[in-house]
Amino acid sequence: MSASDTPARIAQRQKTRNRWLLSSPALLIVFVAAIGPLFVMLAYSFMAKGDYGGVKPWEFSTDGWFGVFFSRDIFDDTLTIADANVTIFLRSLRLSLLTTLITLAIGFPTAFFIATRPARMRDVWVFLITIPFWTNILIRTFAMQEVIRNEGIINTVLVATGITSEPVQILYTDWAILFGMTYVYLPLMVLPLYASMEKLDFRLVEAGYDLYANRIQVLRRIIIPIVKPGMIAGSILVFIPSLGAYVTPRVLGGGKNMMLGNLIELQFGAGRNWPLGAAISITLMVLVMVALLVYVRYAGRSGGQHHG
């Protein structure tokens, strides 16, 4: 028995062991069925592709990574930028950013509206936002599909009122994906915005008006700076799933207007290029991580300013 084996230390060691024992099932499940496979995928991205999908095990190759942005001509071996992939990357970024901006533009006034209701009514309004949030994403996408299709309610109204003579093709365009993602991710913007606006002290707003600010100035100089953390959190919560969206572009984009998620699926399906699919997946994951890191950095800093 060493000198360090005091009863207090033994008890401490026991506590540490129990903590690990108790958390181990959850840690193990997440590791086996979520984290571990990511490492296997990383390994796959550095292998040669199999002829009918899969990979040639242990055959090292960087073709997968190479193929993310470049393509090699089969006949003369010349290098060209892989236009199709670049287009899809840019479309994903563009549509995700636009989705974030539109949900912010709609979500901000909505969250403000909810936060300014009487305390008891607020829960009801928040509940109304939460219901679509918990509704299956596929059902919501399908609902959007029905609204924007050629025989849908929008086109019916457009034609009936004579604004257009025949239905506008929205479905299977980038617009359809944009509408769909905005619709699907809108609650993700409203909820964190509301959480920060609920805490807004309206005496500060009164002080602003007292000091000769008009409504726009109060909004710009007082409300927005205070609820900025909520705006950033909401933007991150919308941007990240938009970037990795799969269901919405698949249903509303109709196959030719792909986003990253669909490009990945293609490599694992008809494309039969698993290493390329793995490489694109990891690229997407890195993009998301970068967005998260920027958020943590920024949120940490602005949080410090508020409390400092």
């Binding site: 995928m41 990945i264 694992f268 990891i282 997407l284």
Partner: peptide
């Protein structure tokens, strides 16, 4: 992690 990434990793 984006769901599609986990999905294909699990597929592999």
């Amino acid at each position: 992690i984006p769901e599609i990434v986990t999905a294909v990793a699990l597929l592999i």
